[in-house]
Design a binder for these strands. Structure first.
Lengths: 121, 121
DNA sequence: AATAAATGCAATTAAATGGTTGCATCTGAC
DNA sequence: GTCAGATGCAACCATTTAATTGCATTTATT
């Protein structure tokens, strides 16, 4: 996921690199099935693959792959319990992503404010 | 982008369909170059393709494609001005996405709270 | 020990993505 | 009217992604 293909800026500002870091997280969130899985895990705690699969219409292996995508993005974690593996939500990265959106939104708000001042004042 | 491949739930709850709707937005955000473009547009107002391209190391056409992905997700809009097209940020969908993350986070918080109550009494 | 449940692993496939090059079109300026 | 600047459009290519099927492995249970 996101093999650091061809990044933009030459020497990205520190402000932007925070944003940049959450690109993989957004990519992981950018799929209905994964959003569904995440919603389930947020609500319930630790759930097995079999249980998660029963909530979808795809195969167990497909669900497994989605779980690994989410895990690579740091959004979930799986721990073995007996013969099954329980998957649970890990809040850190989602918080990070939320902050990133705030940053963009704030930047926008400031731009609007500057515009307002320039016009009115 | 997101050809509604194989969606999860049979009759998704209204609560989840709000989340589901922002999957395409997250997908659009899940790329460094697009995050960069978005950051620029948030800061600056209306910018031409040529100007945007100069901030990256990819071709103008690649930037154009990214802009269309962002536009399809409703995050930006382009308006023709003379012989150039100015692209600008549109805040609505980003707000929507932010709310989605809040919903997930709140669900998680409530789950923790229930757990706390169950343990502490 | 034998069996069934729950996963893990690998190969395969169709479609989507990110990028490119080349050429056409539209528009402002001289 | 010609010419350069800024896009638009289309074909093409390599990689990644989402899903599948089939088989191997691990682990409760009886």
């Amino acid at each position: 996921m996101s093999q650091r293909r061809n990044s933009p800026g030459k020497q990205a500002s520190p402000k932007f690199s925070a944003l940049r870091n959450s690109a993989p997280v957004f990519a992981a969130l950018g799929d209905e099935t994964r959003l569904f899985i995440l919603a389930v895990l947020c609500a319930g705690g630790a759930v097995s693959i079999a249980q998660l699969t029963s909530g979808t219409e795809i195969t167990r292996q497909a669900v497994t792959k989605h779980l690994h995508v989410l895990a690579d993005a740091g959004l979930v974690r799986g721990i073995k319990v007996g013969r099954e593996r329980r998957w649970e939500f890990v809040p850190t990265q989602l918080e990070e992503a939320r902050r990133s959106l705030e940053v963009i939104a704030q930047q926008w708000d400031r731009a609007l404010e500057r515009l307002r001042v320039a016009v009115e004042g």
